[in-house]
Amino acid sequence: MTPDSDPRALGAFLKARRSQLTPRDCGLPEPETARRVTGLRREEVARLAAISVDYYTRLEQGRVRASAPVLITLARALRLDDDQQRYLYELAGRADALPRRRRPAQRVRPAMRRLLAQLTTTPALVLGRRLDILAWNPAATALFTDFGDIPADRRNYLRLLFTNPAVRELHENWQHDAREAVAALRMEAAPDAADPDLSRLVGDLSVQDPDFRRWWAEHHVNTATYGTKHYTHPLVGKLTLDCDTWASPDGEGQRLMVLTAEQGTPSHDALLILTAWAAEDSHTNGTQKPEP
């Protein structure tokens, strides 16, 4: 047993859960006579989990430790939902072996979309896990690039910073900004280092860019939510913008990134000109692509 396991509590949970199920729930034939026990019998759970009755009995009695493969079959046999599975593994002291859940697709919260729609002269992005770009407004397109032309699986802030020439050249101090973005991803990825999409992103950029490979290996981290960005835009020239990010309150990891300039400064005036041109071009040509 591990220090964190609780064999008696595990046995009590198994017993309680099988009492909540009927043979019909688990695809077993209905008994022809009245049953003396509520729910499933131990023999039925053992059959469903492909283990011996003796072994299952000892599990309920807290006399043996369940292996990870047995926990998998028990979770399936007892029709456990995600929360119940996590509870089962924690009681068994095997939370480290909990099967990885498939994460749902990232969806932009309606409130975030409303904010984007209202920020008409302010570039703004919604960033998700791994700094994926989930949504943007026309002002962000005018500043950075047309995100609608980029395949959704490549639409990542860090990927664009390293591989998109237009985005890369936009940053006046690219090395500083790129290294800080790598550090932000490092910090965000710590609780979910086994994420296959993260591994794919890191692998791709490590192969393509030696700077990324070196900075990722340094394990530099930061949690900065604000700062100053210096851009050189091909249409309006130099821009000094304050970059602020606000986290969504639902804990899903979505953040609103907003770039602003102090009113009355050359950067503010240039930003107004840039977004006005973009809005006029979109209205005239109908080329603005909606976010997915």
Rank of each mutant, 00 (worst) to 15 (best):
L78R: 02
I51N: 06
R58Y: 05
A75S: 15
P69E: 08
T57Q: 11
A66W: 02
R76K: 15
D54W: 11
E90C: 10
D83E: 15
A66Y: 01
L74V: 01
R79M: 11
S52F: 09
T57E: 08
D81W: 00
Q84W: 03
D54Y: 12
G62L: 03
D81R: 00
Q61Y: 07
L71Q: 01
E60K: 12
A92P: 00
D82I: 09
E60N: 13
R79F: 06
Y56F: 11
R58Q: 08
D83Q: 15
L59P: 02
L48C: 12
S67D: 07
G93F: 09
L91Y: 04
Q85T: 08
V53M: 12
L78D: 01
I72W: 00
Y55F: 14
Q84I: 02
G62Q: 01
Y89F: 07
I72D: 04
Y87M: 09
L91K: 04
P69I: 10
R63V: 12
A92I: 03
S52A: 11
D81M: 03
A50C: 14
A50N: 15
A50K: 14
T57V: 14
D81F: 01
A49H: 02
G62T: 04
Y89C: 02
E60R: 12
Y87W: 13
L88K: 01
R86M: 10
R63N: 12
D54Q: 15
A66G: 09
A77G: 07
I72P: 00
Q84F: 04
A92N: 05
P69S: 10
R65C: 11
R58G: 03
A68E: 14
A77I: 05
L59K: 00
L88N: 01
P69V: 10
Y56A: 04
I51D: 05
I72Y: 04
E60S: 13
V53Q: 13
S52C: 10
P69M: 08
T57M: 09
A49E: 00
Q84L: 06
V53T: 15
R79N: 11
E60C: 13
R58I: 04
Y89A: 01
V53N: 13
L91D: 00
Q84C: 02
A77H: 03
R58M: 06
L48H: 09
R86W: 09
Y55E: 07
D82V: 12
R63D: 11
R58E: 03
P69Q: 10
A66L: 07
V70M: 02
D82Q: 12
R65V: 13
Y89P: 03
S67K: 09
T57S: 14
D82S: 14
A77V: 06
E90S: 14
A92R: 00
R58D: 03
R65G: 15
L59H: 05
A49R: 00
L59R: 02
A50R: 15
A92G: 06
I72R: 06
A77S: 09
R86L: 09
L59S: 01
R79C: 09
A66S: 14
L71M: 07
P69C: 09
E90T: 15
Y87C: 10
R65A: 15
R76A: 12
Q84K: 05
V64E: 11
V70G: 01
S67F: 07
Y89I: 03
P69H: 11
Q61P: 04
